[in-house]
């Protein structure tokens, strides 16, 4: 597959602060790359360089074959950007915002209106189209902002933390919309602090820390490095803990810890959540009663812990 985004040895400092310390990335056409990392890791700097808002100190980056420095203006014609803060004009209506962006892509008036209508319909904003954005909810603003980035029918879309600060319902709604875009073949680079978001939307994930890519792979590959899902079982009475551990050991792949005082068994679930039933059957067959049981999914903290040996400071 042809690479649409190519980044080589990208470096950028703000004064003494080194934001990027040699980043390499490749995004094949029609795929989604998720940049995962805590605040201040350098994700936004990468997006700002790739969208020509910021010039790199050294290194090379191209989008659709266009250099971010030498071909900046042409590059801006083939990309769309939606940022961390919904960058829409509150005083204008939703429709006016979209037509404005269309006009600035140098579409004529009729075509700008047609595209605005298309985006409003797709993003379920037709009812609010002629109301001022000042009265929109947070979720509606994000949808409009995302819509504005699509008016120019970009080949490559950049979304910088598209769902940060949204309530869970709006977040899931936005994920569905982004998922549809990706199905249509748009190449997407998205930054996020949420492993779940990267997992759901991205074909490939690059974990960024201190201005470097510290790991790259599919969600599955990264999870495997983190250790995947874990099962926590509390047995009652606590004295049965060794019997329970013996029953579960064959399915844990050697990764099983016991806390005899609490009666807790923690084990890896190499087969994922579907194997929980097997664990329950094994305990039942051994006559061990379950007081509590939970499946623990790997979080960004787990990824960081596994990759860097420390918990990320910004993600709670």
């Amino acid at each position: 597959m042809r690479a649409v985004i190519e980044v080589e040895a990208l470096r950028k400092s703000y004064g003494k602060v080194r934001a990027l310390e040699g980043v390499d990335l490749t995004v094949p056409e029609g795929t989604v790359l998720g940049l995962l990392g805590p605040n201040g890791a350098g994700k936004t700097t990468i997006v700002r360089i790739l969208t020509t808002l910021l010039e790199p100190d050294s290194g090379r980056a191209t989008v659709a074959g266009l250099d971010v420095v030498d071909d900046a203006r042409a590059l801006r014609g083939v990309i769309g950007l939606a940022g961390q803060f919904a960058a829409v004009d509150e005083t204008l209506t939703g429709r006016e915002n979209l037509v404005l962006v269309g006009r600035l892509y140098h579409l004529d008036r009729a075509e700008s209106r047609r595209r605005a209508e298309e985006v409003l319909a797709r993003f379920d904003l037709l009812d609010a189209a002629d109301r001022r954005v000042a009265g929109y909810s947070g979720g509606m603003r994000r949808r409009l902002d995302l819509g504005a980035s699509l008016v120019g029918r970009p080949r490559v879309l950049f979304l910088d933390e598209p769902t940060s600060g949204l309530d869970p319902r709006s977040r899931i709604g936005l994920w569905e919309l982004i998922g549809q875009l990706v199905k249509d073949g748009t190449t997407l680079l998205l930054t996020t602090q949420y492993l779940e978001e990267a997992d759901r939307l991205a074909d490939s994930i690059a974990v960024i820390d201190n201005g470097r890519v510290i790991a790259q792979g599919t969600a599955g590959e990264l999870k495997a490095r983190v250790g995947g899902e874990r099962l926590d079982v509390m047995v009652a009475p606590a004295s049965d803990v060794m019997a329970g551990a013996a029953a579960l050991a064959p399915m844990a792949g050697g990764d099983l810890h016991v806390d005899p005082a609490e009666g807790r068994i923690s084990l890896a679930l190499p087969g994922g959540p579907p194997t929980v039933a097997e664990a329950v059957r094994r305990l039942d067959a051994a006559g061990v009663a379950i007081a509590d049981l939970s499946v623990h999914r790997p979080t960004l903290d787990d990824v960081f812990l596994a990759l860097t040996g420390r918990v990320s400071e910004d993600v709670g």
């Binding site: 020509t52 808002l53 990309i79 769309g80 950007l81 940022g83 960058a87 600035l104 140098h106 120019g152």
Partner: peptide, 17 residues
């Protein structure tokens, strides 16, 4: 402050506009 300048700078419009 509202990020509108960022959006405008990412569009293929004239930088003087």
């Amino acid at each position: 402050q509202r990020g509108i300048i960022d959006r405008l700078r990412s569009l293929p419009m004239a930088r003087s506009a």
